[in-house]
């Protein structure tokens, strides 16, 4: 009797620690944040002392030019970065999907940039962009060109931040698309080759369509992560000059720590979260749709037999 009881309790015992930690340190804070976004709250107050202001934070933000600017910068950054990385990453994967010696060593070197700390990535690039000691301007000068104001001009600063992110994350897309390429059915490729498809035709009509499900998931994963970028930009430009590189995460942390407006920062976090929820649901819905479609196709194929 006692053993049966123990067995029935086992799954709960196994789950309990993880569930408790996540409830206390993840779900509770998120709920707390949603509540805090309706408050006028500064860091020296306990939350109970903060004044309830309803939707004031949200409406105030919509009329706040600086917030709208950084919302726009965030979206621009994510769109530009993800587009460049997808093109480069998928292109490289198609190009390097060959039977060559040392492919695994190559992949190892390519994942280095994403393993090291974003802070360190920012540090390296800040050094390379440095107006006098950085390698870019040193090279430009020795070739007789004018130095470029990498981090001190708004447009260049945005470009610099994009370059650093592309350097760090293109390998992610590359590795995922390479894995997708190598798991494609060989028979389809062989059939195309026998039918006389050229290299381009194979890529456009066979490889890309077959890779599409993985590519979409990769795209969305990368897009979600692009909204979370913070440290690299913090180290490189700290959002400046002006607001040219101030993405939303950065603005949230500055609103909380410099302007001491916790309620407003929470409302901003909520806007960011809503954006990401929409993206995530798009991804999940897509996954479901694809699964449903393959199931339907398989069923149709079985009925034909």
């Amino acid at each position: 009797m006692q053993i049966a009881n123990a067995n029935r309790l086992t799954p709960y015992l196994f789950l309990a620690p993880a569930a408790v930690i996540m409830a206390v340190a993840l779900l509770y804070p998120i709920g707390y944040m949603i509540y805090a976004s309706f408050l006028d709250w500064n860091p020296s107050q306990r939350i109970g002392e903060a004044e309830f202001v309803g939707l004031r934070n949200y409406i105030g933000l919509l009329n706040d030019a600086a917030f709208l600017e950084s919302f726009w910068v965030t979206i621009k950054f994510a769109a530009v970065v993800v587009t460049i990385e997808m093109v480069l990453g998928v292109g490289l994967a198609l190009l390097l999907d060959r039977n060559i010696r040392g492919m695994s060593a190559l992949r190892t070197l390519f994942i280095l940039p994403m393993m090291i700390a974003p802070i360190v990535v920012g540090l390296m690039w800040r050094y390379m962009y440095h107006p006098s000691v950085g390698i870019f301007n040193k090279t430009l000068k020795s070739l007789g060109f004018d130095p470029i104001p990498w981090l001190s001009d708004g447009n260049w600063a945005f470009a610099s931040v994009v370059i650093a992110d592309v350097w760090q994350w293109t390998p992610f897309i590359f590795i995922l698309s390479l894995a997708a390429l190598q798991s494609l059915p060989q028979s389809a490729m062989e059939a195309a080759r026998i039918d006389g498809a050229t290299g381009w035709q194979q890529i456009v009509y066979i490889k890309l369509p077959l890779m599409m499900p993985v590519l979409i998931v990769t795209l969305l994963l990368r897009l979600i992560d692009a909204f979370k970028v913070l440290e690299v930009i913090l180290v490189l430009t700290n959002g400046g000059p002006g607001l040219s590189t101030e993405i939303l995460s950065l603005r949230i942390s500055r609103t909380a720590s410099e302007f001491r407006e916790l309620g407003e920062a929470a409302a901003m976090s909520n806007y960011l979260l809503i954006l990401l929820v929409i993206l995530t649901f798009a991804m999940f819905a897509y996954n479901k749709a694809v699964e449903a479609r393959t199931a339907r196709l398989r069923k149709a194929a079985e009925e034909d037999l």
Partner: peptide, 14 residues
């Protein structure tokens, strides 16, 4: 999907 920046305010408060 939850960015660390979103956890910043509540985690600090709690």
């Amino acid at each position: 999907m939850v960015p660390p920046a979103v956890l910043l305010v509540p985690v600090f408060g709690i």
